[in-house]
Amino acid sequence: MRRLPVLLLVAALCACSGPAPAAPAAPPVSGAAPAAAPVPPAPVVVLDPGHNGGNAAHPEQIAAPVPAGGFEKPCNTTGTATDDGYPEHAYAFDVALRVADLLRAGGVTVVLTRTDDTGVGPCVDARAALANDAGAALAVSIHADGAPTTATGYHVVEPGPAPDGGNAAVLDASDVAARDLLAAFGAATGLPRATYLGDLVEPGLTRRTDLAGLNLARTPSVLLESGNMRNAGEAALMTDPAWRQRAAQGVADGVTAFLARNTP
Rank of each mutant, 00 (worst) to 15 (best):
M1P: 03
P5E: 12
V10N: 06
V10W: 13
V10T: 12
A11D: 04
A15T: 11
P19L: 10
A20G: 11
A26C: 05
P27Y: 06
V29A: 14
V29K: 12
S30T: 15
G31M: 06
A33D: 13
A33I: 05
A35N: 13
P38T: 04
P40I: 04
V44G: 06
A56N: 07
A57Q: 15
H58I: 05
A63Y: 08
P65M: 10
V66L: 08
V66K: 14
K73S: 13
T78V: 15
A81E: 09
T82K: 13
G85D: 04
E88I: 03
E88T: 03
H89N: 14
L97T: 12
L97R: 15
A100D: 00
A100S: 01
D101H: 02
D101N: 02
V110K: 03
G121Y: 03
R127Q: 02
A129I: 01
N132T: 01
A136R: 05
L138A: 00
I142L: 11
I142T: 06
I142P: 02
H143T: 01
P148G: 10
G153A: 12
Y154K: 03
G160P: 01
G165F: 14
G165R: 12
A169V: 08
D172R: 01
D172S: 05
D180Q: 14
A184W: 03
A188Y: 13
P192E: 10
P192H: 08
L200I: 08
E202S: 15
G204W: 15
L205P: 15
D210Q: 07
N228W: 04
A236D: 08
P241E: 12
A242D: 10
W243P: 05
R244A: 05
Q245Y: 06
A247M: 12
T256F: 00
T256P: 00
A257H: 05
F258D: 06
R261L: 04
N262G: 01
P264K: 09
